[in-house]
Design a protein around this nucleic acid. Sequence first.
DNA 1: CGCTTTAACATCGTATAGGATATAGGATTG
DNA 2: CAATCCTATATCCTATACGATGTTAAAGCG
Lengths: 233, 233
Amino acid sequence: MQSVNLPDTTETIAGGGRIQRSNSLVEDVYEAIFAQLMALKIAPGSRITVDSLVKEFNVSHTPIREALGRLEGEGLVLKTHLIGYRASPQITRRRFDELYEMRLLLEPHCAAKAAVAMDEAKLNILLDAAGVMSRRGGKDDRLRYSNFARQDAIFHDKIMEFSENQLIRETLSHQHTHFHIFRLMFHARVTEEALDEHEAILAAFGSADPDAAARAMRIHIEHSRDRLLPAFD
Amino acid sequence: MQSVNLPDTTETIAGGGRIQRSNSLVEDVYEAIFAQLMALKIAPGSRITVDSLVKEFNVSHTPIREALGRLEGEGLVLKTHLIGYRASPQITRRRFDELYEMRLLLEPHCAAKAAVAMDEAKLNILLDAAGVMSRRGGKDDRLRYSNFARQDAIFHDKIMEFSENQLIRETLSHQHTHFHIFRLMFHARVTEEALDEHEAILAAFGSADPDAAARAMRIHIEHSRDRLLPAFD
DNA sequence: CGCTTTAACATCGTATAGGATATAGGATTG
DNA sequence: CAATCCTATATCCTATACGATGTTAAAGCG
């Protein structure tokens, strides 16, 4: 009788009548640790002992070790022999620069491709993701930023999806997990600027203009970089 | 008393006198499975049962599961609950296209950066990696291709290293593992063309010309793609 | 005060057992 | 004869106990 005190993902039935098979314990444990990393409940660099997770989740060593191995493969945790696991350290300034250099190489190009493939359905999805409607929704700053971070992630991810390069999409999405932790650590404030930039990208999509989309995306990423840069001071 | 019948990586002493601590069993098992995947001893898509590895390596379930988890995190194996692990399936045509699209976005840019940062020491490393000396070395076609594949990988990786973006380097290196398996499956023949293209890149590096380097890299990748494309017929 | 020794502790790995599920092959039934 | 059901085996999944080994930190000594 084991129980992972977590979002209950055991045996859900989708609308189509398809039975979504219940996840394995490894899966649940993985999700649980992942969520704790993303929520900073486990701080970057801090140690993660198997035993503490055993007690916390009420499961045995086996599935926890396997889940930690998977997290290690994804680069979210590190392992040192005979010392144990620890959360990956905070992103460095150097890594930050590298990430933005890569984003600038990939995302404008993909934005241009997405603009070509744009149609009304996709545009609506992006409008929704950008949260144009709920722009002035937040009162609490922290909650507001949390919402923005999620929206921003979905917005970019959807554009990558529409650009029809799954590999690039996965690559950036993977990097985003690290980046998300970095942003949360400094709970950067949402600036109206970022939302304006999103709308500029949307405008380019609206007119299905690939060059304008690439340009708007480039500017957005560059400004995003510059907004976050002070975090390293 | 357990023994992984594998390249003996237990306790090596580097030149500097530093003691490289003996790897954990998980590490050894990971390396062993990885090597088998890269050597096609485990075919893409084929099942990988824990028990068979237990018998083969003479170790218990625990480190094997942890190592398999790590491989899963890296995308080299897939897991289905209550069915088990299997090697990731062969790369699809679609994925192949996506990979080359991404390479074309990243590598020419990095080649240009590398050209700017080029000096004699780096150039010599690249000349060595390109195997300019041993160009006509191989007699056996298969062995010859195996050598070329390794050289090509190192050549590109070194260029990424010199372009000083570790993230891009890691990203491409990671993709290369999948790509390597694909290439081996079709044991493509080495063409003199590829070696000529490498030398064209080297020439651009020799004159520290970033534009020429980017151009040569772009051409090389495009040709590489076209050479491998017939594999999908 | 600094170094060495030692003891407590944590991690790593082994071995084993039992429950759950998938897959294959045979038996039953229409 | 074909389709369905059922049983048996292999495999996976998890839990648990134990031993081996290395780390860590405190204690002792020069």
